[in-house]
């Protein structure tokens, strides 16, 4: 099948709200056909985000912890983002990718599984528990939460590359899963892993799974969206 052109945008470390504003702005543009599908890669400063289906008891941050709390419109329950985690927001028009939310989630998982293969980590899915897991014993390495409006996706996945996974269990009951274990690529590989190093593999996996050809988001187009980014950047 022919590959479609799409953009990729590497934001580096960016506050959650700023990236979210940009996502929404880009989603409007994708929805209107002004730009093709686009993938955002980003790392966030420590933040706990809750989804539409988060229960209050899931969040139990100790007093004084330096972490923001944001309620989002994505699916799923609470999760934690922090530096050392590769966050990927594919803004795709699913009219071009099969109009099937379950297939989209499975495809996202597949792209993460392929990303991990590049690091010789064998990951898998667990039926009924969206996300990507390592097995024996099950430990979660990647969380997924998606929002769709007019078949255009926002939010996406967060892959634990190299960070302390304690907040997933100490600060929140991540994803509403009691007793779930969380892990990171660095922990599994027994060596430090840079987010940059994983990002390229992640981009290639998305190209493969979604039949895309990613090219950098052109500066001209990007200028049209710096308004939102800029307003939050000065925070």
């Amino acid at each position: 099948m022919a590959e479609r052109n799409a953009y990729v945008l590497n934001l580096g470390v960016t506050p959650y709200m700023e990236a979210w504003d940009l996502q929404r702005s880009l989603a409007s543009a994708v929805s209107l056909g002004e730009i093709p599908d686009i993938v955002i890669f980003v790392e966030h400063p420590p933040v706990i985000t809750t989804g539409r289906r988060t229960n209050e008891g899931e969040v139990h941050v100790p007093p004084g912890a330096e972490v923001d709390l944001v309620e989002t419109d994505r699916g799923g329950k609470s999760t934690f983002h922090g530096p050392g985690q590769l966050v990927c927001y594919p803004i795709f028009d699913l009219n071009r990718h099969g109009r099937d939310v379950k297939k989209y989630c499975r495809d996202l998982e597949e792209s993460v599984i392929q990303t991990l293969v590049a690091f010789e980590l064998e990951a898998t899915r667990i039926e009924g528990l969206t996300g990507v897991w390592l097995e024996r014993p099950p430990r979660k390495i990647c969380s997924i939460g998606v929002h769709i409006s007019r078949w255009v996706t926002t939010h996406g996945y967060a892959l634990n590359v190299d960070l302390d996974p304690a907040p997933f269990t100490d600060w929140i009951t991540a994803c509403g899963l009691e007793d779930a274990a969380f892990t990171t690529m660095a922990r599994e590989l027994g060596r430090p892993v840079a987010v940059n190093e994983v990002r390229d593999a992640a981009a290639r996996a998305l190209e493969e799974v979604f039949e895309l050809r990613l090219e950098p988001f052109p500066a001209d187009d990007r200028a049209a969206f710096t308004v939102q980014a800029g307003s939050a950047a000065s925070a």
């Binding site: 539409r52 699916g75 379950k102 929002h147 769709i148």
Partner: peptide, 16 residues
Amino acid sequence: EPLLEISTDKVDTEVP
């Protein structure tokens, strides 16, 4: 105009 939001799996969708 968005009328409601539905949830399937880990996906929330706005329904116009």
